[in-house]
Amino acid sequence: MFGWIFGILDGIFGRKKSVSLGLYGAPNAGKTTLANRICMDWVGEPLGKVSEIPHETRVVQKKERVVMDMNGRKLSMNLLDMPGIATKVDYREFLQYGLGQDEARTRAKEATKGIIEAIKWLENVDAALVVMDSTEDPYTQVNITILGNLEARNIPVILIANKNDLPNANLKRIKEAFPQYHVVPISAKEGKNIDALYRAIFDRVK
């Protein structure tokens, strides 16, 4: 009933109507799988293509006005699925996945541009989900650099321990590496514990 009044007040006091939520992490951590899960749950359509070949996402993929609704509370977000951040890109790595020389070189070039774009976005997101593969060592320089930059800008962060359904997943290792962060273990692929993530987003993303 008072929605339009609040809308005007929000406009006057400058409160954002949608928050920009960035998904960050290393290549193949499962960012796009998670983005697709969120979009399917709240918008009814996926966001991007998933592949086992690293650097499948090479441009920032956006889904605007994803509205989450939990117990009558609403949160409107612009979801930003970032290219995976890496410190090295070697086209030869893609040859191992059956890509030809030209295709591999093109993919490498696009991947480096995507990394630069994702890095530039670090100062423009309102909140971030930093996605880690629970089966891999989380204490990498890429994760440290991403978290350090978000923290330096006081951007709220939720750590996602993804692929937590796999037998060699190690949640404890992520919690011990980054004890100061709220960690949510999930399987984006299977949808396991995804409600806990949504609650965390509601609690921490304003």
């Binding site: 410190t87 086209y91 480096t112 630069i116 890095i119 320089q141 650099t145 350090g148 930059n149 330096a152």
Partner: peptide, 28 residues
Amino acid sequence: LQPDDERLLIEQTMGMVDDTFTGIEISS
């Protein structure tokens, strides 16, 4: 290195990647 330095270092070295220079490894 401070987070901003690391960020700039990765950003700039990614712009230099070619067949012979494939980027960096960094640890701190």
